[in-house]
Design a binder for these strands. Structure first.
Lengths: 286, 286
DNA sequence: GCAGCCTAATACCCGGTGGGTATCAGGCCG
DNA sequence: CGGCCTGATACCCACCGGGTATTAGGCTGC
């Protein structure tokens, strides 16, 4: 049985995401018949049915869902080969550190300063991305290390070093009754009917049910808070980007948030190792 | 720039491992000229030199070493797609748990019993492998979960659950002077000139320097111990497979060994989740 | 109930490219 | 200097991945 080719994986992923052979073929820039044929050959080779063909398109079987998950990981790994190899060929390549736009700059600044102070330190490029994208960028080789937040981010499959632990605060409009409180509980925060908590997309892109507005990016969220449409529970250090007329109140029983440095587990490059050392040194005495 | 195909990765890995185009072509079952061409196209597409061509074959550049590491991971991921998808299509597939041959059966037995006791438990197949192979089998989809040992095994990239912590013992011939002691230290054990400690291969397959015999498998080792050629420092629970005329003495300052359950981080299948729950429950009251 | 559509599947053709064979080129060695 | 062992070049072929045209089968709506 011949091995899978990445082309076949890309074809499968396209169909699995579109659930429609025609649109998937469009997206791939090929015609529909060869795509249908490729998928059926794939099913035949694997001995597994991946789609239930329906008049209205196609739906994934259980095996298809497994394959989709695995295929995405494999394609990221293949992309990472190309990216990391190219970057390794560049003699004075910088490290790429990715972090959420809007997260605290203070910790990052200290980390960069500490690392730059070491002799022969590799320069570090900082890449800002939207919430939840760090893991993908790390996996597909766009970035070398990431600042992430437990328990929010998907840390599966990475090596990590804890940098900082902090509590969370609620961000409220200044005039709101709760804004005068010294502290709040999660129950109180979740029970405010006029300020429902915004909903973030899940890993698969869908949104949980609930009254709050759907939100994809930090800037959307910032705007909604400015409009007084929602409230936020965020790490204390993120207070930096609150609007002038908002108030931060500690939420005493919210889970603690740990800022971690994460990197892909394979073969520690010296540059990454040095950065991790700097990070570890930063934490213990500080 | 077209994406990398797994065929190209396999070609590259073959050459990188053989460091010889002719032998690599042999191994791949193709002729040498197309292989040379494929590699040079690859270098051209990536814009990176991967090999220094020498008369006596080829040697890897720095970028080539990066690519080799990344390629192996990517190929494992692609293989895992096929394996896991096939297995997902099998309606009553068992979970495959891999563990080192020769490790303690006691803990494993308790784990299997605990899991089997739950209603609707998935059957579990046990796969035995040689030292250090678990990680690869887990990565390429041959196994679903593994019993591994920190700090010995390569746990990078897996989710883990600690199961058991224990000290280590030295295994000696019964007649040896140190066999009469109540306990030993690492320094004493390493200083026995007539019983040098055996050497295991590193991750890349090479052996560290030293006086002890080179060893690849548990059975080789068992034989050497039986012959009185070497001594062992091993987790206390592995005492089970000692020969009749050998003696176990605790090594007080040896690092503690943690037995962990490890599994690939992507999308927790219910079956794995149930096994992990059983494992966690096993640990806390026990 | 039949016409029209929207889906995926089938039939068939074509060209690019991956692979084979034969050969070349250049150092090391005897 | 001549064998020889390396990778590189030249050239050819056939396979298969992709395109176009068409079919098949439902659901929808008039």
């Amino acid at each position: 049985m011949p091995d899978l080719e990445t082309r076949e994986l890309r074809y499968f992923v396209a169909v699995a995401e579109e659930l429609h052979f025609g649109r998937a073929a469009d997206r791939l820039g090929i015609a529909q018949p060869p795509l249908s044929r490729a998928i059926r050959l794939l099913e035949h080779r694997l001995g597994v049915q991946l789609f239930e063909r329906d008049r209205r398109g196609a739906v994934l079987t259980d095996a298809g869902r497994v394959m989709l998950r695995e295929s995405r990981a494999a394609l990221d790994a293949v992309e990472a080969v190309a990216r990391r190899t190219r970057r390794a060929g560049d003699p004075n390549r910088p490290l790429v550190l990715v972090t959420k736009a809007g997260a605290s700059h203070e910790l990052l600044q200290r980390l960069l300063d500490a690392q730059a102070a070491e002799p022969g330190a590799t320069p570090v490029d900082v890449l800002l991305c939207e919430v939840g994208e760090q893991a993908k960028l790390l996996r597909d080789g766009h970035a070398d290390v990431a600042l992430m937040h437990r328990p929010f981010d998907d840390l599966a499959g990475f090596d990590t070093e804890d940098l900082h632990v902090e509590g969370q605060i609620a961000l409220l409009p200044a005039g709101h009754p709760l804004a005068a409180r010294e502290q709040l509980t999660l129950a109180e925060v979740q029970g405010v009917p006029d300020l429902p908590i915004a909903r973030w997309p899940r890993l698969d892109g869908s949104y949980p049910d609930g009254p709050g507005p759907e939100v994809r990016t930090q800037s959307q969220l910032a705007q909604l808070v400015a409009l007084g449409k929602t409230l936020l529970v965020i790490p204390a250090s993120s207070r930096a980007w609150q609007w002038p007329d908002h108030v931060a109140v500690p939420v005493v029983d919210a889970p603690e948030v740990t800022t971690v440095l994460a990197w892909p587990p394979n073969g520690h490059s010296p540059a990454i190792a040095a950065l991790v050392r700097a990070a570890a040194a930063l934490r213990s005495p500080g």
